[in-house]
Design a protein around this nucleic acid. Structure first.
Lengths: 223, 223
DNA sequence: GATTGCCATTATGTATGCAAAATCGTATAT
DNA sequence: ATATACGATTTTGCATACATAATGGCAATC
């Protein structure tokens, strides 16, 4: 059963990625039982790498694995979602504050440059490009916090929440509002104003949460 | 190979716990190669549950697992340690702020009660009891934040940093200083003063970091 | 008719076997 | 003497096989 897709990673890792994609795409819906044998057959491998992939995904919270009871796609409750958005807002605000305090001049310039790039994207109303640039923007701030632990946590949370935010930038005027909020964040960071950066980012993230409204099903965007 | 220690958890889970203990105790030192076969023989099981345990531990950062290159006890650099302590201070401070904002009256009373209990422990200079109560104190604040995501993260970080803090409360006068700092946190939380709670907790955690000084090897406390 | 207990089926947890990659030692060439 | 290449050994990754716990259906009983 040789299928050398990527040399340098194992089948378990590739499987974890593939299963995660399938879950995030909505094909595997919350609550669905993830039978090891079924997955093994579906991906043409044995149960062993499937099990390792499932354990790996369980550690990210994407699926639940109970001893002797198998794995199921995690059923995210409305309260859990609230807590994830809340945690994300706190962490991002913290990163923004740290960025305001510790970013190098080069990093501040880069952030400003990115902000200007996004200005153009907003003007031509390219929502896909904005969604991509938005991730980049937030990632720059994670990195600017100069704390890999916080940055990894923020990245994991963002990835975990992605399916619940997919449709967001499709809504009319969302990009320009988001962009305006980014401006406040950038301004504070460039000015080395830690508490303003924290407040601006927290405000931004809170609005993101609000715009999602109450839970509801994750958007079924394709991959 | 039946060894029914705990019915309801798997050997993989028990193995992960056992290996973690051995690493945290210092018997498995940083950089040590964790050979699957060696571990399997040591714990009297086959390689399969050992592999699952290693993957699980890798997700906590306690060990490094590279594809095709096996697992090693994570070698924590001084900069990583700094980032972990920094992240911990930020998260704890955030939890304290959220606790100040959202704790129920009952939770505030309970925290105050715990603080009074610790007062007695400090007076009779029972350092082991203080160390235990201290974990309880911080846990109460995690819970008071009413955000399981942040709380889990804080708990994981605390556990991860435990070996680097073991000797801390053995130092003369550490308990009373810590207790005094706790008082400020409790006071702010009881007064619903969010920013004071944040500041007090951050101050407290920063001192913890300082008292550790620069890296050095983790304390080799037994279990 | 509902409930409970038993048995067949299914799925998970673990052990074992095998193939490929990595590591280490040795020998050879420069 | 150093570096490189080759081969043996070790170890990981994966597949397969087996044992045990969980699940579901059926029947017997209240």
């Amino acid at each position: 059963m040789r299928q050398a897709k990527f040399e340098g990673s194992t089948q378990s890792d590739r499987l974890a990625e593939a299963i995660a994609e399938t879950v995030l795409s909505g094909e595997f819906q919350p609550g669905l039982r993830l039978d090891e044998g079924m997955l093994a057959e579906r991906y043409g491998v044995s149960r062993t790498p499937v099990r390792e992939a499932l354990r790996q995904l369980a550690s990210t919270g994407l699926i639940d694995v109970k001893p002797r009871r198998g794995a199921t796609v995690a059923n995210v409750t409305s309260s859990q979602l609230e807590m994830m958005f809340g945690a994300m807002a706190e962490i991002e605000a913290t990163c923004a504050r740290l960025a305001a305090m510790g970013m190098t001049p080069i990093e501040r310039r880069r952030l400003q440059g990115l902000q200007e790039t996004m200005e153009a994207i907003v003007l031509r109303d390219d929502r896909d490009a904005y969604a991509a640039a938005n991730i980049n923007f937030h990632t720059q701030i994670y990195l600017g916090a100069h704390n890999e632990i916080l940055s990894d946590f923020a990245t994991a949370l963002r990835r975990r929440l992605a399916p619940f935010r997919r449709a967001q930038f499709r809504t009319e005027g969302r990009s320009s509002r988001s962009h305006a909020e980014h401006a406040a964040v950038v301004k504070a960071i460039v000015a080395c104003d830690a508490s303003a950066a924290h407040a601006a980012m927290f405000h931004h993230m809170s609005l993101v949460e609000d715009s999602f409204g109450q839970l509801g099903a994750p958007s079924r965007a394709t991959a």
